[in-house]
């Protein structure tokens, strides 16, 4: 798979990554190489094979009792935020 500049711009946008003009061609090349490399998977015979999302097949999700175990710690948690006002995380205006 050979990606175009436009493809990479599209992916970068979907992933919300700013890529500089200078870096774009580098990514076009390396991502194309990686995709070509992984395409050898197409050769594998996988008809009828279930996709494996977890290494421990057969394990089931455990359930937690419905209990409130947390207390308000927003001051501590917000110490890592750059912009906070009145307990809210502040971002540039959200347009719906």
């Amino acid at each position: 798979m050979s990606l175009t500049r436009k493809d990479v711009e599209g992916i970068a946008h979907l992933a919300r990554l700013e890529i500089s003009e200078a870096q774009l061609p580098v990514y076009v090349e390396s991502l194309s190489k990686i995709l070509s490399f992984v395409e050898q998977l197409n050769a594998a015979q996988t008809t009828g094979v279930e996709p494996m999302a977890h290494p421990l097949a057969g394990e089931a999700q455990r359930l937690r009792p419905d209990e409130v175990t947390e207390q308000d710690q927003h001051v501590k948690y917000q110490a890592n935020a750059v912009s906070v006002a009145a307990g809210l995380y502040v971002v540039p205006k959200v347009i719906e």
Binding site: N42, A44, T46, V49, E50, P51, M52
Partner: peptide, 9 residues
Amino acid sequence: LQAQKVRNL
């Protein structure tokens, strides 16, 4: 999906 199938193999 193909990768997850090969993973199973």
